[in-house]
Write a protein that binds this DNA or RNA. Structure first.
Lengths: 194, 194, 194, 194
DNA sequence: TATGAATGAGTCTTCATTCAT
DNA sequence: AATGAATGAAGACTCATTCAT
C-alpha cells in the first residue's frame, strides 16, 4: 500500500518478467512451443493473459527471450575458469562432464533446444540464433585441440561435437538412464587419446 | 459413358495417395508436424482439403503413414546383403557410409525423424514407433562389434550410435555441406580401430 | 448379360429406388435426418454415393420421398373397410388399436415422423407436409364422432387426438413397455363412453 | 486507467451468459439442436464465435445449460403452494391450466423439450435428463389421484399424461391457436370426473 | 500496470454434391 | 445407369492478440 519508488517498480517488473520466462521455458520444454498456449502460461504463472503482453510483444518474442535466458544460463556455466586448466585431454573431459551434468540439471532447456533445432530449417529466426552457436562451439573445440597440439583437430572436433549432441539426444529422448560417466571416460581414454 | 473400372480407380487412388504422402513428408520435415496445416498440404499438393480425408482418416493417421513410408524406404536400403560381408571394421564402415548417403538422399525423412523424436515426450504413439527402433539399432551395433571380437562392444555401440545421430543432426540443421567421407574414415580408422 | 427390355430397366430402377428409400427410412429414423449421411445410406444400401443422385435430386428430396412412402404405407393401413363398421365406440376402439399396433410394427417410421414434426417450426416444407395430415385426422375423428351422434364431437376429437399422439410419444421415447391394450380400453370405456 | 473490478467482470459475464442462453434456446427450439450452428447463434447474439467458448465448453455443454435454465424456470412455476390445495379435481385442473399457460409463455422451452425428447434415442445424456423427468411426472400424477381416492389412478395418470403432452404437441406444431381452457375443462369435467 | 472479455482468423474435420469416365 | 474421386462450403473449436476500464 505504501507508494513505490521507481526502483521498486523496476524490481517488481524484473521479477514478474523472469517468473514468466521460467514458467514459459518449463511449458515450452514440456509440451513444445506450438502446443503451449499463452493462456496456459498465464494461468500457470498466476497472471492474466493481458499481463504477458506488457512484458513480451508476442508469443514468438517470448520464445526468443526464453531461448536467450537459457543460453545465458548455459554460457555462464561454461565460463568457468576451472574448465580451462589442464591439458587438452583434461579440458575435454571436464567439458564433456560439465555438458552432461547440465543435461541432467537443465534437461528442460536442452530438450527445448533440441526440439527447436529440428525446426530450424523452416525458420530463419531460429537459424540466426542457433547456427552461430553450434559453429562457435565447433571452433572452440577445434581451438582447444589445436592449441594443445592434437593432430587432426578439425576432424576430431566434428566427431566429438557430433558425439556429444547425439549422446544428448539419446539420453533425452530414448534412454531414461544413460551411463554418462563411463561413456565420457571411454570416449576420452580409448577413442580420442588411446 | 462406361463407368471407370475398379482398376482405374485403384490406380488413381495409388497415385494420389503417394503424391500426398510425399508432399506431407516434405512439409512435416520442413516445418514440423504441428506447424504444418492440412490446408497447407492440400494447397501444396494441388488438391482440395477434403481430398486428404479420402486417403487418411486424420492428420495423425497421415503422419503415421508418412512415417511408415519413410521407414520402409530406409529398411529396404539396409536390407542389402552386401552390408553383412567383411569384418567388423568393414561392416561398420559400410554401415556408416550407407547411413550418411541415405541422409543425403532421404534428407526429408531423416529430418522429419529428428523433429519427431524431439517431440516424442508428448506422444505415446511416437514413443511406440521410435524407441524400439533406436534401441534395436544399438543392439545391432553391439552385436556386430561383439561377434567380431571387438572389446567393449556396448560402450562403443553407444558412442558410435551417438556419433552417427549427432553428425546427422549437424548435417541436417547446421552445415549444408558435411565431410561425411572423411569423418567416417577418421572415426573408423583413427578412433575405433586405431 | 442379355440385353434388357425397357420394362426390365424400369423394374430394376423401381427396385433400387425402393430399396434406397427403405434403407434411408431406417437410418433417418434411427439416427435422425441430420445425423445420417449420404455416404452411410449408400454404403448400407450397397451402392455408390453417385447412384443416390440418379434417383433423388438431393438429400432433402430423399427425405420427402421417404416421408411420402411412409405416409402411403400408413394410409393403406387405415384404408381398411373393417375399420368403418360398428358404432362410434367400436370404430374408435379399432382405430386406436390399429394405431398403437402400427406404432409397434412401424416404430421406425413413427419416430421419424415425431422427430420431424418437432422441427416443423423452422421448415416450411415440413409444415406443408404434416399440418394437413394432422388436421385431416382431427376432421376424420370429429366426423366419426359426429356422425354417430356423439355430443361435443370437436372437443372429444381434440382430446382423443392429443391423447393418441401423447401416448405414442411416451411409448416411443420414454417407456419401453406400454400397456396399450389397457389404456385403449380404459380411455374408451371409462373416459369417452362411461 | 484503473483495471475493472472483479465485480464488474462478474456482471459482464452474467449478462453475456444469459443473453447467449436465451438466444440459443430460441434457435435450438426453432431449428433443432443439430441444425443450429454456433456461428448462427453468435451472429444472432451479436458476438463473435469465440465468445461462446468463454461461457460454454462446447456446443453440448451449451445445450445442457439451456436445458438447465429451462427446467429451473419451469420448476419455479410449479413450486406454487396454491397448486396443492383443493381436491384432486381442482388440483388437476389447476395443474393443467398452469401447464398450458406455461406452454404459451415458455413456448420456446417446451418446443425445445419436445424436439430433444424425439432425439433422445441417440444420446445417453439426454435420456438421463428427460426420462426421470417424465417418469416422475407420471408418479406425481398417480399420487395426486390416488391420495384423493380416485380409482384406477395409474391408468388415469397415463391417459392424462399422454393427453397433456399430445395437446402440447398439437398446440406447438400444428395449431397456432388452441382452445386450452375449453379442452381442460372438458377433460376434467366430462372425461375424468363426469 | 493489470484484468479478462472479446475478436476473428485459423485449425481439423465432415459431407452434400458434382463429374469424368 | 453406375462408380467413387474430388470439391469446397460449412461445422465445432482454439488461440494469439487487442482493448476498455
Amino acid at each position: 500500500m505504501s507508494p513505490k519508488t521507481p526502483d521498486q517498480f523496476q524490481e517488481i517488473r524484473e521479477k514478474s518478467r523472469e517468473h514468466l520466462l521460467v514458467v514459459s521455458m518449463r511449458l515450452f520444454a514440456l509440451n513444445g512451443y506450438q502446443a503451449t498456449s499463452i493462456s496456459q502460461i498465464a494461468k500457470e504463472a498466476g497472471v492474466a493473459k493481458g499481463a504477458l503482453y506488457h512484458y513480451f510483444d508476442s508469443k514468438e518474442t517470448l520464445l526468443e527471450e526464453v531461448i536467450k535466458l537459457g543460453l545465458t544460463n548455459i554460457q555462464e556455466l561454461f565460463n568457468d575458469e576451472e574448465l580451462k586448466s589442464g591439458d587438452a585431454k583434461e579440458q575435454l573431459r571436464k567439458l564433456m562432464q560439465k555438458t552432461f551434468k547440465s543435461m541432467e540439471t537443465d534437461k528442460e532447456f536442452w530438450s527445448l533446444y533440441a526440439s527447436l533445432i529440428t525446426q530450424m530449417r523452416g525458420s530463419e529466426k531460429l537459424k540466426e540464433i542457433f547456427r552461430p552457436l553450434v559453429i562457435s562451439t565447433f571452433d572452440m573445440l577445434t581451438n582447444l585441440l589445436e592449441s594443445n597440439g592434437v593432430p587432426d583437430a578439425r576432424m576430431r572436433a566434428l566427431s566429438i561435437g557430433g558425439m556429444i549432441d547425439g549422446v544428448a539426444l539419446h539420453y533425452m529422448y530414448v534412454m531414461e538412464e544413460y551411463p554418462f560417466e563411463e561413456v565420457t571416460n571411454y570416449i576420452i581414454d580409448k577413442m580420442l587419446f588411446p
